[in-house]
Design a protein around this nucleic acid. Structure first.
Length: 420
RNA sequence: GGAGAGGUGGCAGAGUGGUUGAAUGUGGCGGUCUCGAAAACCGUUGUGCGGGUAACUGCACCGAGGGUUCGAAUCCCUCCUUCUCCGCCA
């Protein structure tokens, strides 16, 4: 979330940012509420001061075995007033919190203002599009090879779920292991294998709640949520902590399945693996000093790109415009790989700088100097990568004319076979 | 799920309802001593929110949230969590 002081002093910028991000949060009530809040604080605190002073006098009188009944009686009234004002303050602050939690992060200085995906900026492209001899999409390829079973996924769970089978399952595991090893061996990451269910507080910490509540699978009995991305447990790993400064930057990567309800999306763009309710992803999360976060975003993005290059997939890098930049993010790069079967770009990674937005929500701090005040760290994360759409691009890119699919050489040590 | 015992500063660990933001130890920082270091000694050392240009000052915080009281780290209730034991289960 944003700092209340920042909102107070920059209300115009905050309004403009909300508009640029295509959000509709109403912030008009904030200034008035904030003023009311400070007025009540001053009132109640001066009463509490009286109470504290008189209580000491009462203690003194009692110690000397003197009568304190008058003072005690007069304090009764003060105490009642304090209770009323405290309650009023609590309500005001709850109201402020409800608004502040719904205000999106400020976009960074380099983010182009724009409405939709059409306004995103293409930063660079790598590789060349593969031309298939006979056009086939991943669903046909997978069905022919009997490596993915969408029908039984639908029967057992519902549409948007699938079974990986035989070499398909092994290829999926190979992708996950390859990507984790790549990050830990080449980029200095520490692996975390996180819980897949998290509590409400964690979902608030990274900003999925309250805004995205409808997209979450919610276990109501225990008020727990299936994670939509490993970003949630990996970032909240350090919630409510004071990070040891020499340890920064901290870099974690981790595999998890990701669960998304994707409420209300059906049709051509969602068939097969293009949009599913459960997919696998390796996520990278960084905790850095504030002055380092913009450079780290560039480096983090490169780390994700390195994986796509290793897999030999044609891709492009996009800088998202304000309207496409997510609620919690300040600036986001998307990596999209080319799907020869769909003849379309598929998002496989999103790399974002969240500045201090998540750190303030999740209370993750560090001390810049040993004697200095604690500050919020900056958090970043990037997919590295989401496997289901990578699988689409792999099958369609490495399809041979005889219907078999070759395995990219970097994966062969993990699969034990070079062809499906 | 049941029974019991805990949760106090960076860490360890005291704390009879009334100068307790909190003893003591330890760690950190500064200093004395030293060529330098160690030891010893002295000093200092939490966070958040208000007010003030500032020096400074008020309030809150002892797992979380309520309650009792003129006054709560201390008493009561609910919840979370850790440990020990029992039960159930993969």
């Amino acid at each position: 979330m944003l700092d209340l002081k920042f909102i107070r002093e920059n209300i115009g910028l905050v309004r403009e940012n909300i508009k640029n991000k295509n959000e509709s949060t109403q912030v008009d009530s904030i200034l008035e509420l904030d003023e009311k809040r400070r007025k009540v604080i001053q009132e109640v605190e001066s009463l509490k001061n009286i109470r504290n002073v008189v209580s000491k006098e009462i203690a003194e009188l009692k110690k000397n075995k003197q009568d304190a009944d008058d003072k005690i009686a007069s304090m009764k009234d003060v105490s009642d007033k304090i209770k009323l004002l405290d309650e009023e303050l609590r309500l005001i602050e709850a109201e402020i919190e409800q608004v502040v939690l719904r205000i999106p992060n400020m976009t960074g200085p380099d983010v182009p203002v724009g409405k939709s995906a059409a306004d995103n900026k293409i930063v660079r492209q790598w590789g060349n599009p593969k031309i298939q001899a006979i056009k086939k999409n991943h669903i046909e390829i997978a069905r022919n090879l009997d490596i993915i079973d969408f029908e039984r996924g639908g029967k057992v769970s519902g549409s948007g779920f699938a079974f990986y089978k035989g070499k398909g399952a092994k290829l999926e595991r190979a992708l996950i292991n390859f990507m984790i090893d790549f990050h830990t061996d080449n980029h200095g990451y520490t692996e975390l294998l996180p819980p897949f269910l998290v509590n409400r507080n964690s979902m608030l910490g990274t900003g999925q709640l309250p805004k995205m509540a409808e997209d979450m699978y919610h276990a109501t009995e225990d008020d727990m949520f299936l994670i939509p991305t490993a970003e949630v447990p990996l970032t909240n790993f350090h919630s409510d902590e004071m990070l040891s400064t020499p340890d920064l930057p901290i870099k974690y990567c981790g595999y998890s399945p990701c669960f998304r309800r994707e409420a209300g999306s059906y049709g051509k763009d969602v068939r097969g693996f293009l949009r599913v309710h459960q997919f696998n992803k390796v996520e990278m999360v960084n905790f850095v000093r504030p002055e380092d976060s913009w450079q780290r975003l560039e480096d983090l993005t490169n780390e994700a790109e390195d994986i796509v290059k290793a897999l030999g997939l044609h891709y492009r890098l996009l800088l998202l415009c304000s309207g496409d930049t997510s609620f919690s993010s300040s600036m986001t790069y998307d990596i999209e790989v080319w799907s020869p079967g769909e003849e379309n770009w598929l998002e496989v990674s999103s790399c974002s700088n969240f500045t201090d937005f998540q750190a303030r929500r999740a209370n993750i701090r560090f001390r810049p100097e040993p004697s200095a005040k604690p500050e919020f760290v900056h958090t970043l994360n990037g997919s590295g990568l989401a496997t289901s759409r990578i699988m689409v691009a792999l099958l369609e890119t490495y399809l041979n004319e005889d219907g078999s699919v070759s395995v990219p050489s970097c994966l062969v040590p993990y699969t034990g076979f070079d062809k499906i």
